[in-house]
């Protein structure tokens, strides 16, 4: 802005390839300079790959009764079983390979976590945008509902929704619907965080003149929200989404541990922990320990990524 009169201002000339620009961006720079984040992203990526590829890379299919041998039950880790098969992390009471059940279990946990977070995100962002932009009565109603929601523990809300769903859905459909009910329950318990953040950011953005410029033109309010405001409030949403994903995975595990989550025929990490804890005092520690460690690693790595994202996107902390 130090240009002189009559010297035509030239736009910044330096243009490099998009990849190079990305590589030199602040986000990548802060990533490359944070060893914790690099480790966390590698761990998270490995766990996600393991879950996604489970049907192809798991040593056994723990849900195919034909391959199960009850006599292989309770084999300790890294030792030969009755039928002379090798189980790296041992087997549970029914002779299922613990490593394979963890791989399949992470799959369920991740699926529920991601879907529930997406659900909460869409609902929270949508309501937050409306509340922040419309203001007035809509804002007051939406935000009071969110306040009430936030004053309940999330688990309690999830339990409540789960219980209601049990009552509505006919018994023969319950098994198949369980995963979706779980997603709905966890999603409904978590939308308020998104709504609050987005509402605040929207209230800031709608005061800005670029929104006024669109309003003067008579652009449809929904288009203003989607095309002008939404892209400018997505930064914090990404951060809460990542941290919310870790939270949703833990909530799913808690619900499954309490026995109201996914059925044992398609166990998640929480269900595995629930099964494993029965054998903790009889010495078969591996059935509990390995799923629990996987859960901790998954939640921790995702959480660390969220922390990094928050700091990297917030220039004030740098």
């Amino acid at each position: 802005m130090t240009d002189l009169p009559h010297s035509p201002e030239q736009p910044v000339p330096a243009r490099t390839s998009r990849l190079a620009t990305f590589w030199r961006s602040d986000l990548v720079w802060s990533y490359r300079h944070s060893p914790v984040t690099i480790v966390a992203s590698i761990v998270a990526l490995a766990l996600i790959l393991m879950a996604v590829l489970a049907p192809w890379i798991a040593p056994y299919n723990p849900f195919n009764p034909a391959t199960l041998n009850l006599m292989d039950g309770m084999t300790p880790p890294n030792s030969a079983s009755y039928s002379d098969r090798y189980f790296l992390l041992g087997t549970d009471n029914q002779g299922r390979d613990v490593l394979s059940t963890i791989m399949y279990g992470s799959r369920v946990s991740l699926f529920v976590g991601i879907m529930a977070t997406l659900f909460a995100m869409v609902m929270g962002v949508g309501l937050g945008l409306v509340a922040g932009y419309a203001g007035g009565l809509a804002d007051a109603v939406i935000m009071r509902v969110a306040d009430v929601q936030l004053s309940f523990p999330a688990i309690l809300i999830a339990l409540l929704i789960f219980g209601v769903a049990r009552g509505i859905i006919p018994p023969n459909h319950q098994e198949g619907a369980a995963v979706w009910v779980l997603i709905l329950a966890i999603g409904l318990a978590n939308w308020a965080q998104f709504a609050r953040t987005v509402r605040g950011a929207t209230m800031v953005e709608r005061q800005k003149d670029y929104v006024a410029a669109a309003r003067i033109l008579g652009v449809n309010p929904i288009l203003i929200l989607l095309r002008h405001v939404l892209p400018n409030v997505l930064g914090p949403v990404l951060v809460i989404g990542t941290i919310g994903l870790a939270l949703a995975i833990i909530e799913e595990a808690t619900l499954s541990y309490l026995g109201v989550g996914v059925p044992p025929t398609q166990p998640s990490l929480g269900t595995l922990i629930r099964i494993g804890q029965q054998f903790l005092f009889s010495g078969e520690w591996w059935i509990l320990l390995f799923p629990a460690v996987t859960l901790v690693l998954l939640a921790l790595s995702v959480n660390l990524l969220g922390d990094w994202l928050r700091d990297a996107l917030n220039p004030k902390l740098r």
Binding site: K208, D209, Y210, A212, A213, I216, L217, G218, H228, P231, N232
Partner: peptide
């Protein structure tokens, strides 16, 4: 809408950064 337009004070806030 056809006839009236506006130029704002702050050129940093009046253009959508995205």
């Amino acid at each position: 809408r056809r006839r009236v337009q506006m130029i704002f004070q702050d050129p940093y806030a009046s253009l959508n950064p995205r």
